[in-house]
């Protein structure tokens, strides 16, 4: 059985888009050591994206020639980097989710051997991403007053995009409600240790629940794609 197309595209787009956003940090990180760390995470994600997209077709055609409405990544990963706290909050929310999901997929939650193998490899990478995000969440949350308030703002601001993470993806046999519960438990533990509180607002607005998976994105995503795709599209049929 070949990998379910909707599933590999959804997971592949998540990884592709987040990798792109992290790539925007190059040369801008708060400290040189963090340049190396963020690039490592971006490269892991790009590797995952390439494997996943290749399961659904030609990786470059899929990355560079689809229109915005055809991308099925969650809206969380397309959110602009903001300050370092925003990037860390996005990393914390997403990598915690991705690790839990890939753990389940590695256990055979897909019925597809290719996807199971990808998940088994990726889960180790993602565990490190989650570790990185947790360590920074602790340091920003429990660091200075400034860092605490920046981290709180970032967590609050991105909270509304987290509900979408647990909308079922066609082709993945996963207990999504259980995943959501475990995610919330882990996030709560980390935030409490970081002297932060779990944001209280709604986790998805009624008009946008699960929108990314259906190809409805936020405005910054269009500009991101325009930048990412312009060179490739300017030379139709060229190879690089």
């Amino acid at each position: 059985m070949s990998a379910p197309r909707t599933a590999v595209l959804a997971l592949g787009d998540d990884a592709l888009v987040l990798s792109h956003r992290l790539g925007e940090w190059a040369g801008n990180a708060p400290v040189l050591e963090e340049e190396v760390a963020l690039a490592n995470i971006a490269l892991d994600l790009l590797g995952q994206a390439r494997t996943l997209l290749s399961m659904a077709g030609d990786e470059d055609e899929l990355a560079y020639l689809r229109e915005e409405r055809a991308f099925t990544n969650v809206q969380l990963v397309e959110q602009p980097n903001g300050d370092f706290a925003h990037t860390i909050a996005r990393q914390l929310y997403f990598s915690t989710y991705q690790e839990l999901l890939y753990e389940r997929l590695a256990d055979g939650g897909t019925g597809d051997t290719e996807l199971t193998a990808l998940a088994a490899k990726a889960v180790k990478e993602v565990a490190y991403h989650r570790d990185h995000a947790e360590h920074w969440t602790l340091r920003l949350g429990d660091g200075t007053e400034v860092s605490h308030s920046r981290m709180r703002d970032a967590l609050d601001g991105l909270w509304r995009y987290t509900g979408e993470l647990f909308r079922p993806v066609e082709g993945l046999d996963v207990d999504w409600a259980g995943l959501d519960e475990e995610w919330a438990r882990r996030i709560t533990t980390v935030l409490e240790r970081a002297t932060l509180t779990v944001p209280g607002g709604p986790r998805s607005s009624p008009w946008a629940a699960g929108a990314g998976r259906q190809g409805v994105h936020t405005e910054p995503f269009g500009r991101m794609l325009a930048e990412m795709q312009h060179l490739h599209r300017s030379h139709p049929g060229a190879s690089w």
Binding site: N28, A29, P30, V31, E34, D83, F84, R139, L140, G143, T144, V146, S147, R150
Partner: peptide, 9 residues
């Protein structure tokens, strides 16, 4: 722009 991050850590 990274100063507050380094200070926090």
């Amino acid at each position: 722009q990274g100063a507050w991050v380094r200070e926090a850590a």
